[in-house]
Amino acid sequence: MHHHHLILRVVTKMLVGAIMLFAFYVQFHGDFSPGGGFQAGVIMAVAFIIYGIVFGLDKAEQVFPPWLVHKLVALGVLLYAGVGVVSMLLGYNYLDYDAFSPHHPSHGQHWGILLVELGVGITVTGVMVAIYYAFAGRPPPMKDEDW
C-alpha cells in the first residue's frame, strides 16, 4: 500500500483540493442548481476516501482523526434538529424557517435551508468517512497478492 506511484500521489494531492472545492460549490449552490447537502457530503467524503486509498488508512486517520469524524456525524444531525428547536423556541412550529425572519419569510426560508443543508452535509461527510474507516480498518482474510 505504501509504494504507490509518485505520479498517483501528486495527482491525488491536487485532486483532493479540487474535489473539496467542488463539494463546497455543490453544498452552497444547491438553491440554484442540482445538488445539496447530501451530494456535497458524499463528494467531500470521497476526497478523504481517495486520500486514504492512496496514502493509506493511517495517514488519512492522522489528517482526519476518527474522534473528529464521529463528532461530525452527530454534529450534523444536531444542527439540523437544532434549527427546528430554535424555530420552536421562537414560537413557530418545528422546522418553520419563517421564524428566523418573521417580517420577510423568504429570507428566513433561505437561512433555514442553508443551515439544514449544512447539517446534512456534515453528517453525510462524517458517516461516509466513518464507514470507510470501519471497513478499511478490518483485517482482510488474505492478502491481495494471494488471490
Binding site: V73, A74, V77, L78, A81, G84, V85, Y94
Partner: peptide
C-alpha cells in the same frame, strides 16, 4: 412533535458527548 424529536435529539447528543 416533541414526542419524537426529544429522543431523536438524544441519539446524536449521546454520540457527540461520547
Amino acid at each position: 412533535v416533541l414526542q419524537v424529536v426529544i429522543p431523536l435529539f438524544a441519539a446524536p447528543i449521546i454520540v457527540f458527548i461520547g
